[in-house]
Design a protein around this nucleic acid. Sequence first.
DNA 1: GTCTATAAGCAGATAGAC
DNA 2: GTCTATCTGCTTATAGAC
Lengths: 221, 221
Amino acid sequence: MAGNREKIIEGARRLMNREGSSATGTTRMAEALEISPGNLYYHFKSREEIVARIYERLEATFREGLVAGTGDGITPERFADFYIVAIGIAWDYRFFFASQTDLLAADDALARRHRELQAWSLNALEEIVALLEKQGTALLPKARGEAARLRKSIALNTWLLWISWISFVKVEKAESDLVRGDMARGAVQMFDLFSPWLDTEFEKAARKILNSELERMDAVA
Amino acid sequence: MAGNREKIIEGARRLMNREGSSATGTTRMAEALEISPGNLYYHFKSREEIVARIYERLEATFREGLVAGTGDGITPERFADFYIVAIGIAWDYRFFFASQTDLLAADDALARRHRELQAWSLNALEEIVALLEKQGTALLPKARGEAARLRKSIALNTWLLWISWISFVKVEKAESDLVRGDMARGAVQMFDLFSPWLDTEFEKAARKILNSELERMDAVA
DNA sequence: GTCTATAAGCAGATAGAC
DNA sequence: GTCTATCTGCTTATAGAC
């Protein structure tokens, strides 16, 4: 009853992560999954649709990770978790970040969808900064308009680091294979972007949690 | 005597910028240049080679722009010029930044080459920061090891912003066409990354020059 | 629900005429 | 130096058997 649908989505994601989106045709997917190309097209009307279904998971995980559990204010644990979630997604869907432009150019609906996610995310990140200010754990310069400008800048830079980290590491490690641990520096780099404005105690606590989480992840993967 | 060689390199760059690398096959190149596919293969042994020749220009322009004219110290003019050069390249070779990973995955020699450029560039950027410190126009926190860490961080963030800006703007402007003016915000975003550590007078002067240069560029293009 | 077989199209690249 | 014509190999996707 379940059929191969789930297996295909998950297998395609894995394969594209390993070999890159453009190197992963429907034939190779079917081959790697040990099913026939025909079977693949029974479950999905096109390759595009497979990518779209994978993207939906990326999007859902990301939105959830950015929104959940900030109602009672942001603890150092919660703050560190933002970065953990972010780099987890960048790793789990690295094929997408590596081929963003081509994937979006090939599918208008996907492009619109990602455009909305980007806009939404920049807002959400700004709100997180604002929330940290409100609860006194972040202090931005109060000069006229400066705080608002800086909030936007932190949000945008965090986003840009997030989307580019995979490309950067792939260049750096051209010959050897990427491992999950390569993401850790990216998380720290994103964290560092914000840390100058954080309350010292809060910053210390959050960094400690982030570092131990990253080590834990590395040990598992 | 000159033949079509130059015309092909320049035409391929233009076409790939407009339609994206993966959408620009050798057939389409020949068509757009109004020459035959055969002629194209007389001048270049493969599509890869065309891309490699284009990349060489990107690389040369970039290295030159990052190194030239710092012997007598860095003036606000020279400092602003770094960003002008950087975004000029990001614009002129935007096809490369948009499809980096796929292009490098398809050509090992190119991947190695770009890997060296990335490493070299991070060093060069660090040196620029150090130079600004030495001449007293940048002030980084002196706490043990902090300055070195921050120099590296500024260099890396600047690089990451540079390589990701095009992807970001392409998502934002999904339906309409990109224009050169879309790059201006990227330059400012990169500049902002460094500005908190700059001497106030120097920062003001450099920002003013940067802004007027960006306006000038926009008016021309 | 899964298979085999294959169509249709486009890519990169080459041979050989002019 | 440039052309026409063409080959090979790949891709996405479909038709129809089981």
